[in-house]
Amino acid sequence: MELKFLASDRVEAFVSYIMQKKTVYAPQRAGKHSVALKKVADPGAVVLDYARTMQSVKKFFLPPRDELLQFNLADQSFAPAEVKPLDAVLLGIHSYDRAAIDRLDYNFSQGHAERNYLTRREGVVWVGVSFEPDEFHFSGSVGIRPHDTEGFDVFLTRARDGYLVEVLTNAGRELTAGFDLPATDQAKPQPGHFHQHIFLPQAKLNEVMGASYNNPVWEETAEKCVGCGSCNIVCPTCYCFNVEENVDIKVSGGTRERIWDGCMLREFTEVAGGEVFRGGLAERQRHRVMRKFKYLSDKTGHPWCVGCGRCTAYCTAGISIVSIVNRCISDYEKHAATAV
């Protein structure tokens, strides 16, 4: 792969250039310490050196509030929601967030292929950027490295005084064509080291997690958990939703909308009549973690966690998914050792 060079002082010009071709969404400052993916108006506001955004690119394809249909109460007619392709450049995306979209693509294509999500997915040009693992990232443990270019059209690797640019697809060539990116003989630097690790690969985790159903870690975690559901809401591979009706004040019509939901919230499994199938926080924590490392990986062979570290970074109680999984591993190994 031919490497090109984008000097730090030309990033702004590069962003301006691609903005002429397509709408661009990229990380930008959202608060004192935080960065969020937003539509770019000022090319100078784009931040490529960041740890993580609170919400991933998921929000563009599966918006937190997503209209499904509009209805008219007088004649009981309805019209499907207008859904348009995103048709934009997603700039400055980390490899784990791109990997998360593969998982969402799977969910919204398997069984029944869903128009709403899959339509929005169209027309996206992915421009990735490498990241420096912080105290929460552990994507290396689920096979996703900071320099992985899979699924990207263009990839920027941080190097001295700028970025090494790989143009990977035709869409990438189209986007960058006409912008002067000189070739470079700089070698791709070694990716940064992770500070967090899950001690076993996914292939072994299915078995470990399968044996961890009654591990005390679920009860212990539940004691520290307030059940606020933040871990679900910030997860890039969580896709659960609820459906709500909204009626206008004239009571003449309204919309049916889906809104993000989370398996950590108590009402998640509640059926009419009041039965709650996962009433305790321990059962809910178990479901959340098993879903990432067993239930969906049993089905697909891929872990449903991409190691972004959001659920841990944004948990006010400091509950760490890595610690939970590692605890399951060490208890499993202890048990295996005593059994021999």
């Binding site: 069984g111 869903e114 939703f241 609820n242 499994t269 059926v271």
Partner: peptide, 24 residues
């Protein structure tokens, strides 16, 4: 089995029991 099946098509996640979607 009864579970909360909101979407009916294996998308919304509510009816999941372990690895199985009750609606599917």
């Amino acid at each position: 089995l009864e579970r909360r099946m909101k979407c009916g098509v294996g998308k919304c996640g509510h009816c999941q029991i372990n690895h199985s979607y009750v609606c599917q």
